[in-house]
Amino acid sequence: MGPNELPIPRHLIIANGVFTVVAFTLLLLILKLLGVLYAIGKFTSIYLIIILVTFELIKAIARRHLFESKRNSTPKTSTNSFDSILLIAVSLLVFYVVPVLFGAPLFADFEETLMFSTVLTTLTTVQCLIHLGYKQSVKILLGLNTVDAHSVSVSSVVLRNVQCTVFGAWSAAVVIPLDWNRAWQAWPIPCCIGALVGHVIGNFTSTALVLNRRGKLLYKKHSV
């Protein structure tokens, strides 16, 4: 748990989780039905990024609106636009370089790899920035201060999302080498979808943690 950070109400986490799960599932379904899901590796799918950012903004605004009006003790998230853009750029670079090191083509699939990097950056770094602000994001991403995974706070939820997103993208690569010759096996479609699904699972886990008994106890302990 970060410094000066208070646990947030249970219902907020639940609302947040339910919203994410529903919204992301719907998004994936609609994309699939429209037949554009497998174009996720092309620049034409850039609208997806805008939708994802909008989701996060909705969540952040709703949270501030519902939560901060009641308690004023939450510190204002510091916004430093230049540093934030720099962080996003670095994150884009990292998420480009890492898949290349994992075996993606260096330049041959530039468009695809860059789209993957954009999707991951949106789901991790941009999400962090929107919810936590620049300073807190850097601290969390670089592990400069530790967050208690079992506590119920904005940073723990965000962090779990980041971890699950990365894990989802990583584990989805398993289908790429199979010789089934399906359209969705092409880089980076499985990894992008894996990241989105991982993000959903992360939110789901947070909600489930709050809902189960241990979560309740933790919540009570912190909120009293």
Partner: peptide
């Protein structure tokens, strides 16, 4: 690469450790 990333994450990146 996954193992290398694991080794690095053990140094606390993404709050893994």
């Amino acid at each position: 690469c996954s193992l290398i990333v694991t080794f690095l994450l053990e140094f606390g990146f993404l709050n893994m450790d």
